[in-house]
Amino acid sequence: MTRKPRSYYEPPSLMRSPTMTHAVPLPALDERSMRLRRLVIQALDGGGRGHLGSSLSLIEIVRVLYDEVMNHRPAEPRWEGRDRFILSKGHGCLALYAILADKGYFPEAELARFCRNGSYLGGHPEAGKIPGVEASTGALGHGLSIGVGMALGLRIKASAARVFVAMGDGEINEGSVWEAAMAAGKHRLANLTALVDYNKIQSYGFVSEVQPLEPLADKWRAFGFAVEEIDGHDVAALHGALSSPDAESRPKAVICHTVKGRGVPFAENDPKWHHKSNIPAPEIAAMYAALETI
């Protein structure tokens, strides 16, 4: 390890955010959040690679959706009444695989075969292969348009199901995201919720340097969304923002301020952990150690 672990929540763009002004030690994660992260490490270790940082920032987002918000049936993944979740930032799939395995969509043992020949768990999720995966993603900027189409389709069918699309902050550099946002605003898709995993780091480096996004909430508002800005690791805040659609029938955008690599101190806020391969055994052991329940 070449980098001194950081324990402060201090990316520069976040400091300018009106709702998140603290630079304080990160609050402890509870056992459920730790467990889901251990499943991520299990897959990372099995595959010998993975987008660790990009997945760890997403954990509480998928946890709250699958535990508390979405109607879904793990034994019946194509149940017509289910709420749909699209992981548009497909590279964050370790988080999705962890929650799907935890919920019983497929056996946890499969996680150890991540990215291996013969496994259905690839480095980006594929629909039709993995029970519970709605859309194949990995090429960025596709998920929100698909979500718009699903939301329109559900509306025609008079279904009460909702559609959730999780995007990365780097991902929303793609122009197609804003094409989709325009369409969602036009159609007032109250059954659509866009989530931005705003972990402040994209592949090359800090979002504030590569392609700054602020004022991000204003951008979504300008496209016709009801916007909430929350701590994306705060389970109660996520529940509050996601549990119901907007009262004024607008699509919702939930900007989730997160920490890339959250839960593994030496990976937190470090662009080098966006994607890693050939991770030495002691580092894997250190990850598990960091995620032990005290």
Binding site: G149, M150, L154, K157, G175, A180, M182
Partner: peptide, 28 residues
């Protein structure tokens, strides 16, 4: 009207949207 969409000069979105509609059982 519920099955007619004119979505503007946004081909990427139109294709993704058509995909989403098809995933919901429609033939766009």
């Amino acid at each position: 009207p519920e099955r007619f969409f004119m979505e503007g000069v946004a081909e990427q979105n139109i294709i993704g949207m058509a995909a989403g509609l098809a995933m919901e059982g429609f033939i766009p």
